[in-house]
Each structure stands twice: as structure tokens, then as C-alpha cells.
Design a protein around this nucleic acid. Structure first.
Length: 424
DNA sequence: TCTGGGGTCCTAGGACCC
DNA sequence: TCTGGGGTCCTAGGACCC
């Protein structure tokens, strides 16, 4: 059996942790640049504010209902995620982290056989220790565990699905699950299923393998088998290395000159290089993406990429490459709205293919490596921009995203620790 | 005026190999 | 006159996830 532990309204719940005064108020969290809604407390959901809606469209309803809005604060969210993971580790030895707010847990090796009791104990411990509300779903496959956790969220207690031992409740829960809520059915498939009369998960679980294959290919066959209780997506404890990486941001203001655009692109390239080093990976293909508005008002995107002679995660090399590509794309007539870099064909930094004709000798490469390590450890200790590449002018802030409603980094910055005042 | 930022997998078709 | 059968790798686009 596999458990899925899913945090309820994760970002919104994180914002509440250090703000008891907003415990009962509607809370929502906005995407980068305060653009659109990415998390909602239950009260916000009840107000009918949908996921992903642009902020300007809901400004009135926010004001009328005293909705508390926050810019996204990833320092806080990732730290809370780590803390919750710490609690999970005490309850089961094997954990697969699926996203910042969800994890699968393998229960096969657990001595405890009363899974409902186990789930309730875990849920209460996370609530007590961290203050985070979570839902626990337990089932023989990941797809069913996802379904169970959604049901658990609705009914506020751990949900167990097992088609073998309790067919009745399996059918009951699946019949109450709208087809669009199944893991793997998105905006495109949902209307297609509804058109042929499939409205809930139970109906989908009873179609033939040939039929689903004709509609969705191998992905559909897997989904069907998972719904029926047969594993198609096995539990994966070991972290598989990433295959691609991206660092991009929408700008707070339109950027026209190369100075600001350079600062932005160099920042993204540095971030990408740092993330590569952190995962001990190197990129063989590196590219730049720019989004802009033309003179006649059209929004367009352009990208350029280049194959690197030798895979690398060196900041100076990647920034240099990125700026070259940026200048290839740059047009002074455009107003730039967003930029980003991407790294593809990633491989382990330790087993990199070397190039016979590479101009940089192995001992210079070694020196560059220690140089990067030195920078990383200084930046880790004193803040991420303590040492940065020259093209990043810290005074160039025009491109910085708008974050007007950011909460403090309560748990990751000494200067932003919450203060307690005695009422004496 | 104002709409995020990451990822994964699958499929089809082209180019190429023996 | 008749023209096979088996592969790989790459890319773009679609669909999905959080």
C-alpha cells in the first residue's frame, strides 16, 4: 500500500503559520509579479475565486471580503516543506517527494497494519508539530492514493481505498470522484470523456483497455490499470536526475535597453549555473528566451540556443554564452516583458565527456571548479548575491518582479525572525 | 494597464544507419 | 519488371502535473 500526504492549500497555510491574526480570514497567494492566484484558503474558494485567475480581475471581491493577499514567499514554503518531510521520515522509512507539498510513502514494511489509525496519527502530528493541515490517502496505487487524498481532504479524515478487500467503499469513492479530478485527466480530455457519458472515476475504471488505448495511447492504459488497483507507476524512492532546467522571470516593468536586459539574463544564467552545480550536473545545450511586445502591440517570444563544446556548469562560461545569444536576439524596437535561460541535455558533472580539442586544459578546469565552489560557499553564508558576475548591475532593478505583499522570511533569515512581545 | 514558473512523458515524422 | 526489414537519434508539438 502507498500513502499520499498532501498539504491543504499549502502556500496559503504557510502564510497563516506565523500570523494567528489571519487564522479565520480568507487568504490567497499570488504568483510571481503578483500576477495571478496560485493558492487559496477554503474561505477564498468559497468566495468563488478560481485558481489561476489574474489579480486585477478579482480586486473588487478581494476588497469587499477583506481577503489577505500575499506575494509568493518560496524561502518560507520550501523551509516548511523540509520540516514536514522531517515528520514523515519518523513514520515510514521510504518516501518519494513528489512536489513541494506532496509525498508518497511506501507502507509495505510497516509493522502497523491499521492504516487508518496510522494516517490519523501522522496527520495529527504534522498539525501539532508544524501547524500544517494535511490530507492522507492510502491505496495500492499512486493514482488511487491521489484520489483517496482528495476524498480525505473533503471529509477531513484519512481515506483508505482497497478494491480487493473493500470493493463497496472503492466503488463508492470512485463514483463520487468527477472524471476531471483523476490524476492524468486534464482540461482537454475531460470534455471528451463527458461527451461519451463518462462522468466519474468508477465509469472510467470500467472501460475496456482497447477503448482507452485508442483514445489516449499507453498513458491511458496505465491510468486505467492504476484505477483498477494494478501498479503502472511504481514507487520511486531514489531521486532521478533532472533532464532539463530553466530559470526565467516576467519583468516588473517593460525593459528597453540592453543594460537592464543584460543584468536580467546574466542573473538567470548565474542561477541556472548554481542550480546545475547544486545537483552536480552539467549542460550540453544552453539557450536564452525573450518575450516582448512589438511596436504594433503584439506579444511574441523568441529563443536561441547553442551547443556547448564541453558540458559545463561554470557561471562565467554560461553567462558569456547567454549574453551572446541575447545580443543575437535583441531588437531596440521591442519592449521586453520577460526573459529566461534554459539548459538541456544535462548529464552528471562528474562523468562529463571531454573534448579532444577543448581550448581549456584540464588543470585550468580544476581551478575553475574550485573557484566556483569558493563563490558558492561565500554566497551560501553571506547571501546569494554577495559575489556576483560583473554584468549584473545591482542598481539595475527595473526588471525585478513586483512583490508588494511579501511576508518576511520568518525561518531562513536572522534579520526577519518573528518578534514576540509580552503583554505584561 | 494588469495573466507564473517550473517540470515530465508520449507520439509522429524526418534523417540516418546496416 | 521486380525495390526489405530492422534499427537509432533528434525535434516539435501535445497533454499533463504542481
Amino acid at each position: 500500500m502507498i500513502a499520499l500526504v498532501d498539504c491543504n492549500n499549502f502556500f496559503a497555510s504557510c502564510e497563516r503559520l506565523f500570523r494567528p491574526d489571519i487564522k479565520n480570514l480568507p487568504v490567497l497567494v499570488l504568483s510571481n509579479n503578483d500576477g495571478c492566484v496560485v493558492a487559496r484558503s477554503n474561505e477564498v474558494k468559497e468566495l468563488g475565486i478560481p485558481m489561476g485567475v489574474p489579480y486585477f480581475k478579482i480586486r473588487d471581491i478581494v476588497k469587499r471580503n477583506n481577503v489577505q493577499c500575499f506575494s509568493s514567499n518560496f524561502a518560507l514554503y520550501s523551509n516548511m516543506s523540509q520540516r514536514i518531510l522531517g515528520v514523515l521520515e519518523r513514520h515510514a522509512p521510504q518516501i518519494e517527494v513528489y512536489s513541494i507539498d506532496e509525498a508518497f510513502m511506501e507502507l509495505a514494511q510497516l509493522p502497523q497494519q491499521d492504516f487508518f489509525k496510522w494516517g490519523e496519527a501522522l496527520r495529527k502530528e504534522i498539525q501539532t508539530d508544524i501547524g500544517m493541515p494535511v490530507s492522507v490517502g492510502i491505496a495500492p496505487t499512486k493514482t488511487l492514493a491521489k484520489l483517496a487524498s482528495a476524498y480525505a481532504k473533503k471529509h477531513k479524515q484519512t481515506c483508505l481505498i482497497n478494491p480487493e478487500s473493500d470493493k463497496k467503499s472503492y466503488e463508492e469513492i470512485l463514483s463520487q470522484t468527477p472524471v476531471g479530478h483523476i490524476w492524468g485527466v486534464g482540461w482537454k480530455r475531460e470534455p471528451q470523456f463527458k461527451q461519451v457519458g463518462i462522468r466519474n472515476a468508477l465509469q472510467l475504471a470500467n472501460v475496456s483497455e482497447a477503448w482507452i488505448h485508442s483514445k489516449m495511447g499507453i498513458t491511458g492504459t496505465r491510468m486505467l490499470r492504476e484505477l483498477q488497483g494494478f501498479t503502472a507507476y511504481p514507487f520511486e524512492e531514489e531521486k532521478v536526475p533532472q533532464k532539463t532546467l530553466m530559470a526565467s522571470r516576467s519583468f516588473g516593468h517593460t525593459v528597453k535597453n540592453t543594460h537592464d536586459l543584460e543584468a536580467a539574463v546574466a542573473t538567470f544564467a548565474s542561477q541556472a549555473a548554481y542550480r546545475l552545480r547544486k545537483h552536480e550536473q552539467a549542460a550540453a545545450l544552453f539557450g536564452v528566451y525573450l518575450k516582448y511586445k512589438t511596436k504594433d502591440g503584439q506579444i511574441k517570444g523568441q529563443s536561441a540556443a547553442t551547443r556547448l563544446v564541453t558540458s559545463t556548469n561554470n557561471t562565467t562560461e554560461l553567462v558569456h554564452t547567454a549574453l551572446q545569444l541575447m545580443y543575437e536576439l535583441y531588437d531596440e524596437d521591442y519592449g521586453y516583458k520577460k526573459a529566461g535561460v534554459f539548459a538541456n541535455h544535462l548529464s552528471s558533472a562528474n562523468v562529463c565527456q571531454v573534448d579532444l580539442f577543448d581550448a581549456i586544459s584540464p588543470d585550468v578546469k580544476e581551478k575553475q571548479k574550485s573557484f566556483m565552489q569558493a563563490i558558492d560557499s561565500i554566497n551560501q553564508r553571506y547571501g546569494s548575491e554577495t559575489i556576483h558576475i560583473g554584468s549584473i548591475d545591482p542598481g539595475s532593478t527595473k526588471w525585478h518582479a513586483l512583490k508588494k505583499r511579501m511576508s518576511p522570511a520568518y525561518t531562513t533569515d536572522w534579520n526577519q525572525l518573528p518578534e514576540l512581545h509580552s503583554l505584561k
